[in-house]
Design a protein around this nucleic acid. Sequence first.
RNA 1: UGGGGCGUGGCCAAGUGGUAAGGCACCGGGUUUUGAUCCCGGCAUUCGUAGGUUCGAACCCUGCCGCCCCAGCCA
Length: 562
Amino acid sequence: MTNNETPEKRPLDFIRQIIAEDLKTGKHSGVVTRFPPEPNGFLHIGHAKSICLNFGVGEEFNGRCNLRFDDTNPSKEEEAYVEAIEKDVAWLGFNWGEKPHYASNYFAQLYDFAIELIKMGKAYVCQLSAGDVRTYRGTLTEPGKESPYRSRSIDENIDLFTKMKAGEFADGTHVLRAKIDMSSPNLNMRDPVLYRILNVAHHRTGDTWKIYPMYDYTHCLSDMLEGVTHSLCTLEFEDHRPLYNWVLDTLQTPCHPRQIEFSRLNLTYTVLSKRKLLKMVEGKHVEGWDDPRMLTISGLRRRGYTPAAIRNFCKIIGIGKSDSRIDMGVLENEIRNDLNERAPRRMCVLDPVKVIIDNFPEDLIENVTGKNHPQNPEMGERTIPFTKELYIERADFMEEPSRKYRRLGPGREVRLRYGFLVQYASHVKDEKSGEITEIHCTYDPESKGGSAPDGRKVKGTIHWVSATAGVPVEIKLYDRLFTEADPEADKDTDFLSFLNKDSMITLDKAVGEPCLADLHPGESVQFERQGYFCVDSKDVNTGKILFNRTVTLRDSWSTKSK
RNA sequence: UGGGGCGUGGCCAAGUGGUAAGGCACCGGGUUUUGAUCCCGGCAUUCGUAGGUUCGAACCCUGCCGCCCCAGCCA
């Protein structure tokens, strides 16, 4: 599954340098990382970057990486998401050991730590309303004010917190706060909320708990409990690091993981935040989380991307701290590299126009053989039926071709790949529409396989399929979801207004060579001269095989011809 | 205007005081029964900017400019 990964060594990124140094100096004898998704949505290519980093570090330094569900907000989380996440991480080829971890596994311990904090006078129950908490917090430039509940006695705090836990209060009436510094220039340190009351059932703990710990309080302690050495997260958490450290320092925990931040992934012509992806799904702008246009792991999988391509992509983009938006072409390059090696070649005419070989016997079927891969004989060959009536691509014929055009046209001879050389004879055009309906040719019976005994050369080789023996297929062509390279650049404009209305085009007249019928869901092939396609794994059952175009072939003609 | 970060070619990204790796893109040329692949070659006298230190600076210092993040009882 994950073979074909480029083995070449690149220089170590700054995080791996830190880890290598920690191992070298003996600060740590082993390394433990974790990938901590919240089960409130599907994983996307940005998560893949984090997964490759965390699991990659675990593998490379002979350590381990835990899969931990950060499930501290039951109002947004679902079991279905944890299953989808496990499937995606496994598909990418990573192993999290015996079983996944859950922040919810630590609820009892977290509660005990909170009691400890209260006893140390470092946490208190606050009854300010959410709005008042915000007001008291101050602003970016003004310090906050201390809550009137800040100086409660330890006994009263314990009593209140116990009652919070027992479900004696309504949502929003009480919170547990850390007692730090209301005038800190870092807003996160202005007595952050540690626990809130949520009378909501949790997908794993049911209704056992009425209070749920917040991210900042939970994450550092979960890392600590799991013996994580390096806690890698994205840049927006830099301001949270002091709080991460405060909790562990105050509790004097036996182990103190180091949080290191790196920049999140952005790609051109798409969006990658769970919130925005959710909006795409809920607004029906796509057909679901696994829509092949979505850069979710499940969408990419359905589109025909391979784990190797995604892992190579993550490797090539590197890990750093500067904001960036990587060109979609980089991702496409990786899937082309991978599929170029492993995808068998096939012929399929996407936009057919009929070709009749005038001098070809009516009922004759000439079986010709095509290589499954031009550079790799081990992939074998297959038989392709050549008949009197064929289809070729509408774009492969021109009534008045330019000199650089190398395909079929009046007076021209071209090669039908693996078939015969054919010479243009005439063509029929619908007077009203101007559409070409038939092209007549004659073939050279001596040229079976594609070359003539006299050694004459033709300029063009085009693909074709038998009109009588070919199989009808349905094809979906996908394009970028947005028309702007950075749909998020203008904060005053809704990213949805940049949606590409032509991001999905369905072709229902396509015809492929017979052996296409043998393909299984998820299998990838290259349609020669067109691109890489895979059989849809969630077939809508149209009676025809449905192919998703993963990516086109690199095309220097379309750009040059302009 | 508080705090935390970041600025190397069109897009990424190495570089950690000794004279600008690599990938993508792009431009040439060769091979080719996919205008694909593959193969050759080209592509930053310069590292946001202005000064300073030094024999020597993308790397050290100072000022300035630009961009990102933070005022959830989300993660």
